[in-house]
Every structure is written in C-alpha cells, then in structure tokens.
Amino acid sequence: MTAFLALLLRDMRLAMRVGGGALMGALFYFIMVAMTPFAVGPDLNLLTRIGPAMLWLGALLASLLALDRLFATDHDDGSLDLLMMGALPLELAVAAKAIAHWLTTALPLIVITPVLGLMLNVELSAMGWVALTLLAGTPALTFIGLIGAALAVALRRGGLLLAVLVLPLTIPVLIFGVAAANAAIVGPAPFGPPFTVLCALSLASLVLGPFAAAAALRQGLE
C-alpha cells in the first residue's frame, strides 16, 4: 500500500510541477467548449440544447488526449522497467497512475464546468447536475483510456493512435453521460436510470482497465 501511495503522489507531483500536464486538460476543455458557438452560432436557445453534449464531448477529448504520455514518459526514461520490478502488482501500479491522472486532469475540468455552463446558457443549478454526471463518468474515460495508453506504449506509437483505439470504446459513456445531463437540464426523462448506468460503467472500467492495461504492458515486454 505504501508503494501504491508513493506512486500516486509521485505522479500527482510530476503533473503539478513545471512541464507537467495538470490543468492542460482543463485548458483544452475550456478552449474547445468556448469555440463551439463559433461553429454553431451564438443562438442561446440552441446552445442550451446542445450544451451538455458539447461539455461531454469536450471532456471526452480532453481526458483522452491528455492520456497520451501517461506511460510513454515512464517508458522513455526507464522508469517503467523499475515499476515492473516492484512488489506491487502491475495492475495496482497502473491503477495508481490512472487515479493520479484523473485527480490532476479530470477533476480541474469538472471544477470549471459550471463557468462553461454560463457561456452555454445553462442555468447554474442545472450545471451542478451536469458536473455530477462528469464526476461519475470521467473515471470511466480515464480507465478506458488507460488501456489505449498502455497499448500505445507496447506498440511504440503515440498521438492519435490512442484516440483511434479508444474513442469507440467510450461510446456508451458518452451516450449515458449526455442522457443523464440532458435529463437534468431539459427533462422530461428521469435522471436516475442513465446516471446509474453511468456509475456502473465507471465501476466496471475501474476493474477492467487496470487488468487490460497491465496485460498490454506485459505483452509489450522487450
């Protein structure tokens, strides 16, 4: 457990130091959502209607694009070798890195969501619900993306490959995330069912992601 915590804290510290990726995801998310009206026009009613979808798409891309270097930096400087030689099972080591990544990338993104809601003309009270769907759904994005990040390192490729591999896998999260958010803002469908499925998806990927990612890393041993 001390090894797990040590890795978690190290990754958070790295993300928050100069050159780390913390806040970069939130920044990307902010810019992406702020650019939507330039594409669809500044009609506030339209923005209210598509607001949750834009927020979710922004969160999806921000989480995945930020995952690109999750294992690559450790691989490039030899840290990944040593991470495999610890007594901590690789599955848990991978999970520690994912949690650190979620805390430094996804959490800031959720925090600024209410501000972005104002720009998309979504009421502040409704924004709380949208933020809640992101809180429940982004762990799924991180832990599914984790698999892609591990595969990308095993294949010695990065960048868009990760998005290509992982984006189709995130479709259920997107569907139920937006459904829950829409239910909270405009109704009339109830909020409960899609939100529960969203939580289930997060919990399932919390278990599945680390195993698949660790298997991918072991497969890539060379």
Partner: peptide, 26 residues
C-alpha cells in the same frame, strides 16, 4: 453571458493569454 462581439473578442484574447501561460508553464 451573451455572445456579443466585444465580449467574445475579449474572451478570445483571454484564450490567447492562456495559451501563452501554458507555454511558459511547459
């Protein structure tokens, strides 16, 4: 918030500033 031309221009300026800060941060 209304996507009025002046305010939106200021928002874009702010986005440019954020990019600049990100560059120094990196």
């Amino acid at each position: 918030w209304v996507w009025d031309a002046r305010l939106t221009s200021v928002l874009v300026l702010f986005l440019l500033y954020l990019g600049m800060l990100a560059l120094y941060w990196t």
